[in-house]
Design a protein around this nucleic acid. Structure first.
Length: 113
DNA sequence: CGAATGACCAAGC
DNA sequence: GGCTTGGCCATTC
């Protein structure tokens, strides 16, 4: 066993920023997506996109984490982490991917943030 | 408190 | 269009 890189942070202890991230992501309607940076800005932290990503990493099941993609409209996850699942969920909601595996944010991006 | 981590972002080549 | 570099921010040990 190798030493664990870092113990995954628990959302329970961080009920400030993470909680807001979850609250916002829960508002994202089905069939729509938002970007990490978009969420960060909506919360008043323009540069906290990475933190939002971390929040998603430990998000509870009640949060539609799959509706959060990167600024390019791509799934930020790696095939080994859950890319597969996210893409499947989004497809199930009617979102289409182009040949490069990108989503048209102009079309599916959630404008209300 | 210093150092490390992460599902990011924008700018350059 | 794809790879590299630097910067940002919140949280954890």
């Amino acid at each position: 066993m190798k030493s664990q890189p870092r113990v995954p942070p628990r959302p329970s202890s961080s009920s400030t920023f993470f909680a807001r991230v979850y609250a916002l992501v829960r508002r994202v309607p089905r069939g729509r997506v938002v970007t990490y940076g978009q969420v960060a800005r909506a919360l008043g932290a323009p540069g906290a996109a990475r933190t939002v990503g971390w929040a998603m990493h430990v998000s509870p099941e009640s949060v539609p984490w799959h509706r959060v993609v990167n600024a390019r409209g791509e799934i930020s996850l790696r095939p080994t982490t859950g890319y597969h699942e996210q893409r499947a969920r989004l497809t199930a909601e009617g979102i289409r991917f182009d040949r490069s595996g990108k989503i048209d944010l102009k079309k599916y991006g959630w404008k209300r943030v």
